[in-house]
Amino acid sequence: MIAEAVRANKKAVIPYVTAGLPDLDTTGEIVRALGDAGAAAIEIGIPFSDPMADGPVLQKASHRALKAGFTLEGLLPRLAKWSASVSAPLIVMSYINPLMRRGLAETLARLSDSGIQGVIVPDLPCDASGIHEMCRDIGMDLIRLVAPTTSEERRREVVSQCSGFVYAVTVKGVTGARSSLPAEVRRQVKSIKSLTDLPVCTGFGVSTAAQVEEMLSFADGVIVGSHLMARVMEAKEPVEEAGNTLKILMA
């Protein structure tokens, strides 16, 4: 119930955590700490060797996790325990290739069976009707992205195949913190909201409590990835650091 969880949370921040950094057990603890700190939902990022939509921080996180031995097969059996440990819904964010490797439908079903409620794919095919139907059939939310460049017509199509929430990409570019976010975001979110009853969450570039506050004045939720992972990668105590970083953003 991702949409409900986002709506019910007065300060809906959705943290993103790269799985397997420094190892999968720690990721499990980070997920719980983020849940305890009040995350509206939690995105678990699947590391990929060629993350073309990611900026330097998440590239580094992916690379390090793979070097540390991350595998999707290693992650899958742990997910059920993780999703039971928090009340916030868990969402998997992955490039499409790792999801397709052992069959897209089969992998989505395994994620769903492990309690994962939604999936975000940053390099979804242009015609995504196939994966849309697969997700619908197993009752999993397919969270789709709307970019600043997305046309009105395409926006309608994307939103009609979207569930959970609409992910409004705030900037042209890759993931990563930015000191200022474009003013058009407000208009973009408003225009998406006119097309759907789903919550609209903004992401890409958010790193301060002030930015969170500003975004939440017109959006239903905010996704924070690179900022959190930069802190986690630097910290001696990554679990505590993750929880504290989220608390500061929500303050």
Binding site: A53, D123, D127, L145, A147, T149, R154, K172
Partner: peptide, 13 residues
């Protein structure tokens, strides 16, 4: 083939 790209690039393609 296909177009497996970030949404931002789709209009450009």
């Amino acid at each position: 083939g296909g177009q497996y790209v970030p949404e931002t690039l789709l209009p450009a393609l």
